[in-house]
């Protein structure tokens, strides 16, 4: 288990961390310093990864809308202001550094048992991605369908029993509870 997790972490580091090379730390980051695109694919299994057009999104949204307080921008959420009004730029702004990719694992849950911890409700990495993207897309009229952002893979079609795994007309009728 442990080695598997380490391998997973290593892969993650290569996949995401590789493209998140930041310039010298200043007080506030500039959108212009951010990468053009971010490939989000560390969790891809049922759906393929997403080539996230970071540059385009920086034009329509401010950094704090997605990166919270980590980019050092002005924090507006009254809940965050309480602690992060002046916390400045963080060491990292990469999602996976804060949002665990093994949410709900024993490890993750036991860490959250710490009574001193305030962020007991921090979403996992998959949740963070989707909550961030989908919530905003719903408000701004962006695409919200699953396959609008990422296509379903062969494994996905198998689990959703769709595409080539779709129930045929004749075999799907084992329903009796009407």
């Amino acid at each position: 288990m442990r080695t598997r997790k380490k391998m997973l972490q290593a892969t993650l580091a290569i996949a995401i961390g590789g493209i998140l090379l930041w310039p010298e730390p200043g007080r506030t980051m500039e959108a212009a310093d951010a990468p053009e695109t971010v490939e989000i694919n560390s969790l891809a299994r049922l759906y393929s990864g997403v080539d996230f057009n970071h540059a385009m999104h920086t034009e329509i949204a401010s950094c704090v809308q997605c990166h919270h307080h980590t980019t050092g921008g002005e924090v507006t959420d009254p809940n965050c202001i309480r602690c992060h009004a002046k916390s400045g730029e963080a060491d990292t702004v990469s999602c996976k550094e804060c949002h665990s990719s093994d949410r709900f694992s024993k490890d993750d849950l036991s860490k959250r048992d710490n009574p001193a911890l305030y962020h007991i409700d921090k979403p996992g990495l998959k949740g963070a991605y989707h909550l961030n993207c989908v919530t905003c897309h719903q408000k701004t009229g962006g695409p919200t369908g699953c396959q609008d952002c990422h296509t379903m893979t062969e494994a996905g079609e198998k689990m959703f029993q769709t595409g080539q795994h779709a129930p045929s007309e004749t075999t799907g009728g084992e329903h009796s509870g009407h």
Binding site: M159, F160, T171
Partner: peptide
């Protein structure tokens, strides 16, 4: 999105549904 329904069906080895889970 019905992902939970699909995952449950797979995990619990339930019968094939009438319609795909992305319907």
């Amino acid at each position: 999105c019905r992902s939970c329904e699909a995952a449950c069906n797979e995990e619990q080895k339930l019968p094939q549904p009438d319609k795909p889970f992305d319907d």
